[in-house]
Amino acid sequence: MLWNVDLTLVDVTIVTREAYADAFRQVTGRPLVKLAPAMGRPDSEIIFETLAINGIVPNDDHLPRFIDALAGAFAGRRRRLDKDGRAMPGAKDALKAVSRLDGVVQSVLTGTIKSNAVHKLRAFGLDAFVDFEVGGYGEEVYPKATLLQVAQSRVKQMYGFACDGSNTVLIGDSTRDVQAARIAGATMIAVASGRSTTTELRDAGANLVLDDLTNPSEVAAAISHLTTPLTPRPA
């Protein structure tokens, strides 16, 4: 069970933008004029586009330096997350309801770098339901569909479960999330809590589209209905 983070579980847009501006200045010595839109993309992609649209020619050193600076800038603002951000409606109850399902491992598939994903969920008490070690993150320079498969592989390694499309669910809010799930052969539950509309999410091929996460029983029931239980790999 993989959750997207931003605009699915939390909204910390203000803090994220400030951290990006801080990181950009640290890496380039210049103020940030324009930030590339997220649109469900990983931080690695946003960083490269942000450099380009601000007139910086990226080199091999830019990405690791920017990721380190972004992690530091965000960590320095982590105490503001609950003040200037919010957990999405129903997020905590949905995570809790899914955690009660037999054989479920919950993690994240997010464009956010790992350290920032942890800060985002921890600020709202959502981290207790998530195994961050088997997730997929924005510093890993792969398309989201590949990250999903990487996360499946991590679950196999750590839990010994036979993990494939029949028992992998992604919950996210963007058409990019839907596309990643379809390419990887996973089940997609879309939530119209971000910038993609219900129609866009449905047309992109989501198995189910919810308005939000405020009915945790509905979320848990949908996962049970759309998947088969995880089973250990044969010895």
Rank of each mutant, 00 (worst) to 15 (best):
A206F: 04
R86N: 12
R17T: 13
R30M: 12
E18H: 13
G194D: 10
Q152T: 11
F129Q: 02
G136H: 08
V130P: 02
T13I: 09
V10F: 08
L208W: 10
T110Y: 06
Y142C: 07
P216A: 07
A71L: 06
A220T: 09
G205M: 12
L121D: 04
P42I: 07
S196P: 01
P229C: 03
F24C: 13
I56C: 08
A21F: 01
I67C: 13
P89Q: 02
I56A: 06
T187I: 05
Y20M: 13
V141N: 13
A220N: 09
G135R: 03
I67D: 08
S166H: 07
P229E: 00
A23N: 11
A221I: 03
N215Q: 03
K120Y: 02
D131N: 08
D82P: 04
P143D: 03
Q26G: 00
H62F: 03
V155K: 02
L121E: 03
Q26I: 08
P89C: 02
V155Y: 09
L70N: 05
A222G: 12
R30F: 12
A38Q: 04
G194C: 07
T198E: 15
S153K: 14
N215E: 15
N207D: 14
V191W: 06
A145M: 01
A192C: 10
V155W: 01
F48G: 00
G76K: 04
K92I: 00
S217F: 02
S196A: 05
G136P: 11
D22L: 11
V108F: 07
D212V: 11
V150N: 06
D131A: 09
E218P: 00
D127F: 02
L81Q: 12
T199S: 14
A52C: 02
T198V: 10
G136W: 00
F48S: 13
E200Q: 15
E133L: 02
G55Q: 10
G40P: 00
D127I: 09
V33E: 15
E133Y: 11
F24Q: 06
L226F: 05
S99L: 13
V33C: 07
S44M: 02
I183S: 05
N54R: 00
T175M: 14
G29W: 08
F161I: 13
R79S: 14
A220L: 10
S107I: 06
Q106L: 08
V98D: 07
D93L: 13
R176C: 03
